[in-house]
Amino acid sequence: MIAVYPGTFDPITHGHTDLIQRGARLFERLIVGVAANPSPNKRPAFSLEERLQLARAALNGAANVEVEAFSTLLVDFVDYHGAQVIVRGLRAVSDFEYEFQLASMNRQLRAEVETVFLTPSEQYAFISSSLVREVAALGGDVSRFVHPTVAAALKERVCRV
């Protein structure tokens, strides 16, 4: 069975990679979909190509995981790959309402596509891309929260601003 794990991954964190690795154990193929067009209230720190490269670096070695960009409706991306499942992460109860709305909308658009929710390991439950970006922007060490390649890219990006 094929599944899709979508996100903006700006940047990809250990929380993301934890969920992706666990999702990869559940499905024969897991496609990490990097959204080309994040929601209007998000301004990515990295370009789409940079987010793809960083995700691939952070996931190096995962045999059944692929990383691809998409700029369509998520359900169209899922259909294109012949996937049956969307994998989403829930860090806290506060994520549930939004994720439930997304899952319900996706079900209305494609009734045959299921959404599966995974929770991250406890040591990653508090990590979010926006918090990691904020810590990095203020000069903090983010190496505990992201892959070394991602930490270096964040440090370079913050220094250029």
Rank of each mutant, 00 (worst) to 15 (best):
47 S>E: 09
130 S>M: 01
150 V>Y: 14
75 V>G: 00
52 L>G: 07
82 G>A: 06
10 D>W: 08
95 D>L: 07
113 V>H: 02
126 F>T: 06
39 S>V: 09
91 R>F: 13
122 E>P: 15
76 D>Q: 05
101 Q>G: 07
87 V>Y: 04
130 S>K: 09
124 Y>D: 08
159 C>A: 13
154 L>M: 07
97 E>C: 03
29 R>E: 15
48 L>N: 07
144 R>L: 12
61 G>H: 09
151 A>V: 15
73 L>T: 05
160 R>H: 09
116 V>T: 13
94 S>F: 12
84 Q>W: 06
53 Q>N: 12
133 R>I: 04
38 P>T: 08
142 V>P: 02
108 Q>M: 11
73 L>W: 00
155 K>M: 13
55 A>V: 06
40 P>F: 12
45 A>P: 00
68 E>V: 04
55 A>K: 03
134 E>C: 00
46 F>L: 10
57 A>Y: 10
55 A>C: 12
42 K>C: 09
55 A>F: 06
34 V>S: 04
117 F>N: 05
63 A>W: 03
20 I>R: 02
92 A>C: 14
7 G>Y: 14
61 G>F: 09
119 T>H: 08
14 H>M: 08
98 Y>P: 04
30 L>H: 04
149 T>V: 15
130 S>V: 04
103 A>V: 11
104 S>A: 12
31 I>L: 12
108 Q>K: 15
2 I>N: 06
31 I>P: 05
156 E>L: 13
119 T>G: 11
31 I>A: 06
131 L>N: 10
132 V>W: 01
98 Y>G: 05
160 R>Y: 04
121 S>R: 12
129 S>Q: 07
111 A>L: 08
4 V>M: 07
101 Q>F: 01
64 N>K: 00
26 L>T: 02
2 I>H: 08
68 E>I: 05
85 V>Y: 08
42 K>Q: 09
120 P>S: 10
82 G>C: 10
97 E>S: 11
54 L>K: 06
35 A>H: 00
70 F>L: 00
110 R>K: 10
77 F>E: 12
120 P>T: 03
56 R>Y: 08
121 S>L: 15
42 K>E: 13
60 N>S: 15
45 A>G: 06
48 L>G: 05
17 T>V: 14
136 A>K: 04
68 E>Q: 13
125 A>R: 14
21 Q>K: 05
58 A>D: 07
145 F>R: 15
16 H>Q: 08
74 L>T: 03
140 G>R: 10
131 L>Y: 01
134 E>A: 02
151 A>K: 02
40 P>K: 04
34 V>I: 13
69 A>W: 09
105 M>T: 07
127 I>D: 05
80 Y>T: 04
131 L>D: 07
122 E>G: 14
23 G>T: 00
66 E>H: 01
80 Y>L: 11
130 S>E: 07
149 T>C: 15
